[in-house]
Simulated assay, not measured.
Amino acid sequence: MVSIGQVVIGVDDMRRAVRFWTQALHYIPRSGAVSDDWTILDPVNGLGTPLALDVSESPVQEHPRMHLDLFTENADEHAAEVERLIALGAQKVDWDLYPADPDFTVLADPEGNRFCVIDLSHG
């Protein structure tokens, strides 16, 4: 049997990526270590999937085949989290694939990697 052990994101600038994702997700570097080419981030409370950052030369995909979904419980929390993530360095993506009444907002981290913030209460 296998299970997901961690999610890996390719980055250009390790220190910038660590700053963003630790603040965005309330994670910390495993054992306090940040290396120049590979860093694993763990949830502060120990619950959840680790996020690994790997220096990569691959270009960012405009429409990535895989991405992170960050969940919020309601519309107010969704709006507040989107604004908080933007204040940390994320950018809104001019997403051409939004449905008529989206329950999500597409953002890009400071490295350009796309991720979604989803309002779970959206009907």
Rank of each mutant, 00 (worst) to 15 (best):
M1F: 02
M1P: 06
V2A: 06
Q6P: 01
Q6A: 11
V7H: 01
I9C: 10
D12A: 13
D13E: 15
D13C: 11
M14Q: 08
R15Q: 08
R16K: 14
R16L: 12
A17E: 04
V18L: 10
R19F: 01
R19H: 03
T22F: 02
T22Y: 07
T22D: 02
A24K: 09
L25F: 13
H26E: 11
H26Y: 03
Y27W: 10
Y27T: 04
Y27H: 07
I28K: 08
P29R: 00
G32N: 05
A33V: 14
A33K: 09
V34H: 01
D36T: 03
D37S: 11
T39G: 00
I40F: 02
P43E: 06
L47Q: 12
P50E: 08
L51C: 08
A52W: 04
L53K: 04
L53Y: 08
D54E: 13
D54N: 12
S56N: 12
S56D: 13
E57H: 12
S58H: 12
Q61K: 13
H63L: 14
D69V: 14
L70Y: 15
L70I: 15
F71Q: 10
T72K: 05
N74F: 06
A75R: 14
D76C: 02
H78A: 12
H78Q: 05
H78V: 12
A79W: 03
A79P: 00
A80K: 07
V82Y: 09
E83P: 00
R84C: 01
A87R: 14
L88Y: 15
L88D: 14
A90F: 08
A90I: 15
Q91F: 01
Q91R: 13
K92N: 03
K92E: 13
V93S: 01
D94Q: 14
D94K: 11
W95F: 13
L97H: 11
Y98P: 07
Y98V: 01
P99H: 12
A100Y: 00
P102F: 04
P102Q: 08
F104R: 09
F104V: 11
F104A: 10
T105I: 06
A108Y: 09
P110V: 14
P110Q: 10
G112T: 07
R114H: 07
V117T: 07
L120T: 12
S121A: 15
G123M: 01
